[in-house]
């Protein structure tokens, strides 16, 4: 898969409450979750982004809660993927389960400035900064987890392969 868009760059330790504040956690509607994306960091964030844009962050992106609201909100707001130096463990799992592609690469994050246009190729394992021409390597993803992304998340994967309780 190839994901291409303008980058929106954030700092280190962007927590799940920053992605979507806990006060909105008692909703199950993805569109409503998406409508609060990053609002405590930048209340106008949603007006600025376009479908396919790429979220970029420093270390420990998604630390905090085990709520899936964070990856759901990012995905349903139309962002195509997240590139960060590193991800918090639970967010990492949840992203694959929600079908949100995420890529860990410290050097790519170093080499991307706010607003740069990037192209992420998950099969080639590369992130190309189209604004500067530089190409970076991405950590590879185990095949099973790649399948989760392709299916659009764990529940869709399960349906696709007709897994049922014994």
């Amino acid at each position: 898969m190839v994901y291409q868009g303008k980058t929106w760059k954030f700092g280190a330790n962007v927590d799940t409450d920053a992605v979507i504040p806990a006060r909105y956690l008692n909703t199950t509607d993805p569109a409503e979750m998406a409508s609060h994306l990053m609002e405590d960091i930048d209340p106008k964030f949603l007006e600025k982004i376009k479908p396919g844009d790429v979220l970029v962050a420093e270390e420990n992106f998604g630390c905090g809660s085990s709520r899936e609201h964070a990856p759901i909100a990012i995905k349903h707001a139309g962002l195509s993927c997240v590139v960060a130096k590193s991800f918090a463990r639970i967010f990492y799992r949840n992203s694959f389960n929600m079908g949100l592609p995420i890529f860990a690469s410290a050097e790519a994050v170093e080499g991307i400035n706010q607003g740069d246009e990037v192209k992420v190729d998950s099969e080639a394992g590369t992130i190309e900064n189209l604004s500067t021409g530089k190409i970076f390597k991405v950590q590879s993803i185990p095949p099973f987890m790649q399948q989760l992304i392709e299916a659009g998340g764990l529940m869709n994967y399960v349906k696709k392969f007709k897994m049922k309780t014994e």
Binding site: G64, S65, S66, R67, E68, I90, R93, N94, N97, M98, G153, L154, M155, V158
Partner: peptide, 24 residues
């Protein structure tokens, strides 16, 4: 719940997961 690590105080491997993982 992310704080499921608390059970480590009893020598148990406890860890938090999301709702979709939990459904599985």
């Amino acid at each position: 719940d992310s704080h499921t690590t608390t059970y480590g105080a009893f020598g148990a491997a406890g860890t938090g997961i999301g709702f979709t993982d939990m459904a599985y």
